[in-house]
Structures are given as structure tokens and as C-alpha cells.
């Protein structure tokens, strides 16, 4: 108990606790705002969600700098919510909630390492991991025609010799789109055009390295389960933004929806982890949430586009609300 008190009373301990608390409340407020103002635009939604990611990183040191008395026992007494009261609670008079809280954060940190850092490390360290068995598409092929028919800058395009449905893009100085031969066969010309346009969306957006900055900030909060979820939601919004880019480039939302349906569901029987047979609960949950995301993207594309909304006033209101409420949460 002595060590626990020392942890939660230390600067890093208070940062840990308050960044979690502030992100939780920020996430609640942002979700409330998105519902209240019916904000549908993925660009706006992503901008709102970034508040949940960024504000808790700076809030505790900033509040303490602005008002050093905020850390005092007296301030805690009059605070709107003092998480210390819960952390000091002893379940059945034995186990302090603070211990469970720290275990929860440690578990989140392990998930972060296993799901996000190890794959990156593995990809970076595996020799020859980046060499792919690719061929250039024929000049008159559907793939080439699909690319040429799109406006704007054209990335390189390669066909992967693979029997799975695969499509991704690489960024950097020489951006490229990769499609598997099987996928090219399965998609119609319009669907192929929409799929390539979606990847061009990713390439164009990578020129503004927002997602890299977001990921670096996310690393700082490796222990924070709220940030773990919020980062994934930001990535999901990124997919929707690229869907909109594709829809704008092709003028055909239905084609991308159809391509997505084929890509993820038409061949579900042959997918690597069909839902009912996936042995591990974690994989099943991930597969399920992934399916939900794809479904929501398809539904969105099949509906008429939402009217454009500025939302800057709502953004300021939400920012001020989060900043003001979190000040009184210690």
C-alpha cells in the first residue's frame, strides 16, 4: 500500500492517472458532440477525435503550470471528480482498486506492444520482407486503363502474384499501388477504378504526414486503453476519408461499395479467419469489429453523401468544454 500511495502521489503517477481520466472524459464529450451535431464528415470526425488523442498528453502538465495549487489536497477535496478516492478503495478490504487499475494499464501496454509494435519491428527486421513478387500490368490491360482514366497524378501500379484478395499502397518518393492478380480478375472495370482511386487517396494524404504524427502521439500513450480505441477510430475515419477521395475521383460511390463488398465478403468462405471457425476469442472479436467497419463503409457509400458542414464553432465549443471540465478532474 505504501508503494501504491507513493506511485499515485508522484508526478509520473499523477500523469498516468490523469491522462487516462482526461482521455476518458474527452472521448465521452467528443462522442456526445458528434451525435449532438450529427457530424458525418469523416474529416471533421477525425479532427474531433484528434482532440481525445492530443489533449490528455498535455493537459496535466499544462494545468499544473497554469495553477500549481491544482495538485494540492484541498483542490482534490473540492474537485468535481477525484479518481484517487476510487484508487484508494479496498475491495473486500484487501485489494486496492489502484492495483487493478495499474494491471489494466499494464495489460493495455502489452496489447500495444503485441498488436502494434511487434508487427512493425517484425516487418522492419525480416530480411527481404519488402521484396514482393510483382509484375507490371499490360499497357492495354484493365488495370492500366483504370489508372489512366483517373484524374491527377498517377502512382506506379503493380500486380502481385497471389491467390488472395490483396490491395495496398506504398508511399514515399515513388508511391505505388499493389493489387493481387486474383483481385483484378474479380473486380469489374468500374470497381477496379474505384479501388485504385481509394489507394490514390491514401497516397495523396500521406504527403501530409498527419497519421505519422498521430501514431507518434499514440506511442506516448501506450498504456492508455482509451487512446488505443481512439487511435483505431481515427484510422477508421482515415479509410472513410479515402473512400470519399475515391468517390470524388471516380464520381461513382456505388462502384467502391461494390468493390468493398467483393473484397471483404463475397469470398468470405475462403478468407483466412472466417468468423465461426476462428479459434481465438481475440481474433474473433477483431474480425467482428473489422466486419462492422466494412459494413459501415459500404452503407455510407450506398447512401447519398452527407451535406458539407464546417463545424468549427462546434469544434471550439467541444475544445473549451473538454479543457474546462478536465481541469476539475484530478
Amino acid at each position: 500500500m505504501t508503494n501504491l500511495s507513493a506511485i499515485f502521489n508522484s508526478w509520473p503517477g499523477m500523469y498516468l492517472v490523469q491522462s487516462f481520466l482526461h482521455s476518458l472524459i474527452a472521448a465521452f464529450i467528443v462522442d456526445t458532440a458528434l451525435i449532438a451535431w450529427r457530424i458525418e464528415s469523416p474529416v471533421m470526425r477525425q479532427r474531433f477525435r484528434l482532440m481525445v488523442l492530443v489533449l490528455p498528453i498535455v493537459s496535466y502538465p499544462l494545468y499544473q503550470f497554469l495553477s500549481p495549487e491544482r495538485g494540492s489536497a484541498l483542490f482534490r477535496l473540492d474537485a468535481l471528480f477525484d479518481i484517487g478516492r476510487w484508487l484508494n478503495l479496498e475491495l473486500w478490504g484487501v485489494v486496492p482498486v489502484g492495483v487493478l487499475f495499474l494491471l489494466f494499464l499494464a495489460f493495455t501496454a502489452v496489447i500495444f506492444v503485441v498488436q502494434e509494435m511487434l508487427p512493425i519491428a517484425h516487418h522492419t527486421l525480416t530480411p527481404g520482407g519488402s521484396s514482393l513478387d510483382t509484375t507490371d500490368p499490360e499497357p492495354e490491360s484493365r488495370v492500366t486503363r483504370a489508372l489512366e482514366s483517373l484524374p491527377g497524378g498517377k502512382p506506379e501500379i503493380f500486380i502481385l502474384d497471389d491467390e488472395e484478395y490483396i490491395m495496398f499502397s506504398s508511399t514515399g518518393k515513388k508511391p505505388a499501388v499493389y493489387l493481387s492478380g486474383r483481385l483484378v480478375e474479380a473486380l469489374t472495370f468500374e470497381e477496379l477504378r474505384a479501388a485504385v482511386a481509394h489507394e490514390i487517396g491514401h497516397i495523396d494524404r500521406s504527403r501530409r504526414p498527419l497519421m505519422v504524427v498521430v501514431f507518434l502521439l499514440r506511442i506516448l500513450m501506450f498504456y492508455n486503453p482509451i487512446i488505443l480505441m481512439e487511435f483505431r477510430r481515427i484510422v477508421q475515419e482515415e479509410e472513410k476519408i479515402c473512400d470519399d477521395v475515391a468517390a470524388e475521383l471516380t464520381g461513382n460511390r456505388a462502384a467502391l461499395a461494390s468493390a468493398l463488398r467483393k473484397f471483404y465478403f463475397a469470398d468470405a468462405g475462403e478468407q483466412q479467419h472466417p468468423l465461426p471457425n476462428t479459434p481465438r476469442l481475440r481474433d474473433r472479436i477483431e474480425e467482428y469489429s473489422h466486419s462492422i467497419l466494412i459494413e459501415s463503409r459500404i452503407t455510407r457509400l450506398e447512401e447519398p453523401p452527407a451535406p458539407a458542414m464546417k463545424g468549427s464553432l462546434a469544434f471550439i465549443i467541444v475544445l473549451v468544454t473538454i479543457f474546462s471540465i478536465n481541469y476539475y478532474l484530478v
Binding site: 464529450i29 456526445t32 458532440a33 451525435i35 449532438a36 451535431w37 462546434a314 465549443i317 467541444v318 468544454t321
Partner: peptide
């Protein structure tokens, strides 16, 4: 309208 809903939720 959104502000009203938002204020209620806060």
C-alpha cells in the same frame, strides 16, 4: 439544436 443536446449531455 445540437448545442441544446450537447449541453444536456454535459
Amino acid at each position: 439544436g445540437g448545442l441544446l443536446v450537447f449541453a444536456t449531455m454535459i
